[in-house]
Write a protein that binds this DNA or RNA. Structure first.
Length: 248
DNA sequence: ATTAAAACTGGCAAGCTTAG
DNA sequence: CTAAGCTTGCCAGTTTTAAT
């Protein structure tokens, strides 16, 4: 999944932490940095487990989630530069008087007012977010597009595929996990290839024979499938063709 | 412990400035 | 010119601090 998708699909709690938990790793929402569970990470004479180290990573490279978020574009935060400056000072725990002096503003009540205005904004944001969430649940008929794999070589709107569409295609061309026919349309091919690529484990290296064996179990013309998997950017191979692996 | 004073907070209305 | 954003003053409560 694209990093920005990951970022925006994160829950409020995940965003606050700045990273999400996957099956065997943690991923930084801001830069995609990964720490793997079970690994031990050294930093300044200490050792950290994956989750703890992610905290170290964020502190080191992003300062804090707050700092990262406040640095985002106006379009994304909905905040004016002035509001950002105020929030930063609030975050530092300064009181109205200190802020008034620091920003060289005449009255502390101005700061007070901004505090009020920002809280109002918070309430609005919360109700809006909640409404949008409710809308999503309600609107299950709305087409939800299956995300396109990010290594896809050719991507445009033709590849927007809804879940139901995908299900139909899979149903039509697969029976008992084997492919009955390689479809003629690119869109269908994409779905089929994605389905097939699920049989491969990420991070695994496959010998050519090994891969052929797996593909043969799915479709007789495994060479065709192999070629298309590469062409559509699902897998990659060594230039001599001796090893294959799933693209990330 | 009670009370008075000071400091802080939330909120409203209004005027001023500026980008589009 | 208009709307949005910023600044300010004022009032009403609340909380904290100081004084008795």
């Amino acid at each position: 999944m694209e990093l920005s998708d990951l970022f925006w699909s994160a829950s409020l709690e995940e965003m606050k932490r700045g990273f999400i938990e996957e099956e065997d790793s943690f991923i930084c929402l801001m830069c995609g940095e990964i720490t793997e569970k079970g690994m031990v990470y050294p930093y300044e004479d200490k050792f950290y487990l994956a989750e703890k180290y992610m905290g170290v990573h964020i502190e080191r490279t992003h300062l804090s989630v707050f700092d990262y978020l406040i640095g985002m574009d106006k379009k994304l935060t909905g905040l004016t530069d002035h509001q950002k400056r105020l929030l930063t000072l609030f975050y530092q725990g300064k009181n109205d008087k200190e802020i008034k002096e620091e920003l060289d503003i005449g009255s502390a009540s101005t700061i007070r007012h901004h505090r009020f205005a920002l809280k109002e904004k918070e309430r609005q944001a919360k109700t809006f977010l909640t409404m949008m969430e409710l809308l999503k649940e309600k609107d299950e008929n709305a087409p939800t597009f299956v995300p396109v794999h990010k290594t896809a070589t050719m991507v445009d709107e033709r590849y927007n595929i809804t879940q139901t569409e995908q299900d139909q295609i899979v149903k039509k061309y697969f029976s008992d996990g084997t492919l009955t026919k390689f479809p003629p349309k690119e869109k269908q091919r994409l779905v089929i290839l994605r389905e097939i690529s699920k049989q491969l484990k990420k991070d695994d290296m496959y010998e050519e024979k090994e891969l052929n064996q797996i593909l043969k179990g799915i479709y007789d013309d495994y060479v065709l499938i192999r070629r298309y998997l590469i062409e559509y950017g699902f897998i990659d191979r060594k230039s001599d063709g001796s090893k294959y692996w799933l693209k990330k």
